[in-house]
Design a binder for these strands. Structure first.
Lengths: 205, 205
DNA sequence: CTCCGCTTTGACCGATTGGTCAAAATGTCG
DNA sequence: CGACATTTTGACCAATCGGTCAAAGCGGAG
């Protein structure tokens, strides 16, 4: 039975949610080419043909994942408030992005895999959607710097550095833990302290 | 004919070099599971059986690559001089790592792929070889900070941040270029200026 | 109950995968 | 040259890949 607004039945919603969650797990740990439809189906407790009843192809699942997750992923950047206190806004952004690495490491690794291997699917979105957003926020930061409310530096590379440092703790989690050793149960508290110190010294006037 | 020291003929040296170079290209852009031995063979201008005459398996090529490249990859960290001027030593380290991202992006992506997907092969090396080295260098940096020659901060996360920021420009090169737009032909000069500023403000007493 | 549309499945397909093997080609030496 | 080791190749193999299909199972409305 249809449910007018979304055009999806209850069962469809449930199964599609299970599939996307399973696909997120499998794609993020194996990459697109390394993942198999069978793996995803097993992780979602479905048979392979049953999975392909809900999605036409492996590529379709991957695209669907990237599309629906993209907004969530850049949301914290969008929420930086031009009217707020500059340093607070940027430090909050750092904290939010680090929290996302802690709470959504699979999403982080999914995008990392995609970009690392050429961004074949997500590439256009980077040029058409992400770039204007970065332009806008970089201009805002540049204004803050001109007004003497932040120490001057390249705003675009500042944004890159926040992405790089925060996502590092999700994408390279294995390395971080191996290097810190088994004594460190959770690297994130120290990471947050360090990153806040770093960007405070970088930006505070 | 053997050549006593290495146990390799001239042809073997040439072909193995061609294979490792081709494999670096293919593995770094497709990951281990995404790469095929046919691709590597074609990139090395060899037939598949001929390639498997020099290496017993796909996994053997991958292992060989990671083993031989690991030393090169951590060399700049090893070369930080405990007797040098602290800030100079660390800024030089940043410059060297960024230069490696510019000149050896394939190597960077090879390691990024391996770690991102669980570090199944390289994991033990991280615990047994890299961790002691980081411990040693972190202790050195901590001493510098105690002596008042650097602003204090977590030395291990400082090292992580240098890895993260410099390798970002190799691993996420596609994203960086898409976000900066086609007007920017080479992101590296601005990146170097930004990173030197960042770590100078972070560390200078 | 019957009927009908949605859901699930086992069997199967062609293509591609990593890897083998025996034979042929090539190189290297006296 | 002739003899022997090294190198190269086409044909081939079992396993796995993404995807198809017809048939069976299922739930709810009448």
């Amino acid at each position: 039975m249809k449910d007018g607004a979304t055009g999806q039945t209850r069962i469809q919603r449930t199964k599609i949610a299970a599939i996307t969650d399973a696909a997120l797990e499998v794609f993020s740990t194996n990459g697109f080419k390394g993942a198999t439809v069978d793996q995803i189906a097993r992780a979602a407790s479905l048979s392979k043909p049953n999975l392909l009843y809900y999605f036409p192809s492996k590529e379709a699942i991957h695209s669907h994942l990237l599309d629906t997750l993209m907004d969530t992923w850049v949301a914290p950047l969008r929420e930086i408030d031009p009217e707020g206190e500059p340093l607070d806004e940027l430090l909050t952004y750092v904290r939010r992005k680090l929290a996302m690495s802690r709470d959504m490491p699979r999403e982080s690794r999914l995008f990392a895999n995609e970009i690392l291997q050429g961004a074949d699917y997500i590439g256009p979105a980077l040029s058409n959607d992400l770039r204007p957003l970065v332009d806008e926020k970089a201009a805002m930061i540049a204004r803050w710097m001109e007004d003497g409310r932040l120490q001057p530096s390249d705003p675009r590379h500042l944004i890159f550095s926040i992405w790089s440092l925060t996502q590092h703790y999700a994408d390279f989690d294995v390395q971080v833990r191996r290097v810190l050793g088994p004594g460190v149960k959770d690297p994130f508290p120290d990471a947050e302290t360090y990153l806040i110190t770093l960007f405070t010294r970088m930006l505070r006037v």
